[in-house]
Design a protein around this nucleic acid. Sequence first.
DNA 1: CAGTGGTCTAGACCACAAA
DNA 2: TTGTGGTCTAGACCACTGA
Lengths: 235, 235
Amino acid sequence: MTSKLPVYIKIHDQIKKEIEDGIWKVGDRLPSERELSETFGVSRMTLRQAIQTLAEEGILERKIGSGTYVARQKVKETMTGTTSFSDIVRSQGSQPSSQTIAYFITSPSSSEMEKLELTKDKKILKMERIRYADDVPICFEVASIPYDMVKGFTKDEITTSLYQTLENNGHRMIGKSSQSISALSASETIAHYLDLKKGDAVLRLRQVSYLQDKTPFEYVRSQYAGERFEFYLEK
Amino acid sequence: MTSKLPVYIKIHDQIKKEIEDGIWKVGDRLPSERELSETFGVSRMTLRQAIQTLAEEGILERKIGSGTYVARQKVKETMTGTTSFSDIVRSQGSQPSSQTIAYFITSPSSSEMEKLELTKDKKILKMERIRYADDVPICFEVASIPYDMVKGFTKDEITTSLYQTLENNGHRMIGKSSQSISALSASETIAHYLDLKKGDAVLRLRQVSYLQDKTPFEYVRSQYAGERFEFYLEK
DNA sequence: CAGTGGTCTAGACCACAAA
DNA sequence: TTGTGGTCTAGACCACTGA
């Protein structure tokens, strides 16, 4: 239930929703903190905490001596970035889908412990899946997530859009990610998954994603069918 | 004067300094918020603001029910997104070099006309070269540049660092670039250049670079030995 | 000038971690 | 159970903005 959430989170969610619903438009000035605190029936400090989180997310903008305004919405790109498979596929006019090969909780390997900054007593959620564009296999990926990070979420919430779930339901702020890209020849297993011949060129992407406080929350290793996929980047 | 700074900023600075001075070491638990607020002679809310900013900077780590700890420092500043081959190689502790295979002026192909936004009466400067790290071949690349853009520069100015020459000598401001990355199998020619076997996995990078006024000034197609090179990105 | 966000106080109760 | 950080209150004064 949402009723156990802190008040300032609930206020945060409501104001955010009101902006999304168009009640407040870009550039609008919100009522003053004193007015809002009265409206919501909380102290000004609590109301300020809600405004604070919204400001950190870039949704609101505070101006000393003037007021609090709805900020112009910036690139939603930051949320998904260069590696959201679904968005890339959709932007090319195809339909993304995926098949989950494995989904289980286990202990972290040494590289997972290092990348996710975990101790060996922690558990991770591990997922393996094949991703498709219009039913053509494009990518095989293995994702590892600290189990503590997704405890309480449904499998669907985790597999469909982890980023969105963490931000909207988990109130975690997504930060940067570091990635490395290289090429290699397909193993027999990968060739089978991606409908390739063994030895065909494959693009390997390793990605560690972090929250805004620098806590790593996802380590993904992907192999893309080289001839069927391109990464596009802008700098 | 520091005296006009908010109290919580001054407390922030002092705690940060004490950590830098080694009074608190990584993993140490700080006194509780209640103790610290008494020590500094402020309310707990004010003290919490100081702790808050330090936590956001990753200097401190809070643990509910346990205490506040000095976080392990994770610096590793963002390696800027520049896909400068020389910089990447140097950052990995190797020595970059290159061998020019071809360097000539010609008419643009249709894809070059499109990417560089040229008409067919314009000329381009075309360069082919192999790039090395510590004398190991890493990459074969073909670069196309509108000839008007580099008229008057020496061959050395163009091949050594085109970006620097354009900015310093040409007074052109470099802007964004768009890139695509995919994987393919090495052709016989590429295999020869990069000391690979035909069919080995190769990373292909296509890059169009623009000035700040959106004028394209370089179109580069590179093929990297897949097993010898990785791209690192930060988003 | 009046109104705004920024800072600060001195309390309080809660959920959680560790002993 | 004790102590911790997390949340929350009902005030207060400040520096700044804009009319």
